[in-house]
Design a protein around this nucleic acid. Structure first.
Lengths: 191, 191
DNA sequence: CGGTCTCTTGACGGAGTTCAAAGCTAGTGG
DNA sequence: CCACTAGCTTTGAACTCCGTCAAGAGACCG
């Protein structure tokens, strides 16, 4: 798992083998079976998760009791409830494995120390957050611009890797529509 | 304008007066009248804008010719089309002043040099992007969780400062509803 | 005061939800 | 390796939120 993380770091910063060893001590590795919760509503959000292999989703449960998926994370992406993580608050989200998943995670206090002791990691995380922020802003644009049906087609075009790996009812949940309506959209486009 | 920026930097990093002077050379100051465009669709997105005083909005024009506002920026917030800025692409957005506005801006190539020559600024921007990303994720949660009517009430509660400063049709545009429907919601809650 | 923005009102229509029920698929245990 | 079951997907009818269109009433600015 650490080699995958090293390869990812190398895309953003230049780092010696020794410094990487020192850095990796801040992280813990973990393997989790499909459909287990890493985080649950009401808990304090202690960790930031990096996916080496597998697939996570983040969701919350609305007042009707329906799960709303707001995000997926595949290989080389970070996931946490950033707001609760930053301020060390209780979260309103669940983070759940969609497949068997290998991940690294780091706790908030250790991430702070990591950044103090290895200022190079400031650059790494600046790049990561900048990229994530830009992607999220484009996502908001699409949410405003597209009808639910168009969102689905756009999702199929731009994220085809998920179609193989994620069941339909989770895609519906991510698009903010009911499984029934997604089924209707798909039918419309086959015929 | 630079004092306001200095006060903002001080919240995130500790910096000497001399280094601040060196850093401020990377920025340009600008004052812009109400309702002028800083960025227009199809242009290359060259600058990142910091609001010292005033109010900006970012919007795009959908296929029906309607302006969709995706973001406001008040004092001490940064605004640009982050995706186009990062990759130096043509933008699909407009950035427009809502009030007379004083701002600082920095060009992409200069921001890269700033970060190389003043690594402390990596930390500053890491904090800025982290906070912005966390806020945007909560916003996405609300977009999934709330009906348009609830979005309006939530907006009134959590961002009352805008109600004074922004005309109703722009609030409607930001909430993703028509001015007509916003008018109906407001009527419903007065009576 | 005259004209252009902005906000309100009401009738109608359509995208997407809700509810209920039936068909399908995949994992599990025997 | 088959049978059973729970979870996933599809169907259809009734309903609701919100958009569209058209028109009028204020409000602001030269």
């Amino acid at each position: 798992m650490f080699q995958i993380f090293k390869a990812h770091l190398d895309k953003f910063i230049t780092i010696s083998e020794e410094e990487f060893v020192a850095i990796s001590r801040f992280f813990e590795a973990k393997s989790v079976k499909k459909k287990e919760n890493l985080l649950e509503e009401g808990q304090h959000c202690k960790s930031n998760y990096f996916v080496s292999k597998g697939l996570l989703r983040k969701f919350f449960i609305n007042e009707k009791g329906v799960e709303q998926t707001t995000q997926f994370a595949i290989e080389n992406w970070w996931m946490t409830d950033d707001f609760a993580y930053e301020h060390q608050l209780k979260t309103a989200f669940y983070i759940q494995t969609v497949e068997d998943t290998d991940l690294l995670h780091i706790r908030k206090d250790r991430q702070s120390r990591l950044l103090e002791e290895h200022p190079l990691m400031e650059k790494y995380f600046r790049c990561i957050y900048q990229r994530a922020y830009a992607a999220t802003q484009m996502r908001i644009k699409f949410l405003y611009d597209f009808s639910r049906e168009e969102l689905y087609h756009h999702f199929c075009r731009s994220q085809p890797q998920f179609l193989q790996r994620v069941p339909q009812y989770l895609i519906a949940s991510y698009l903010g529509i009911t499984p029934e309506y997604l089924s209707e959209i798909r039918k419309r486009n086959v015929s």
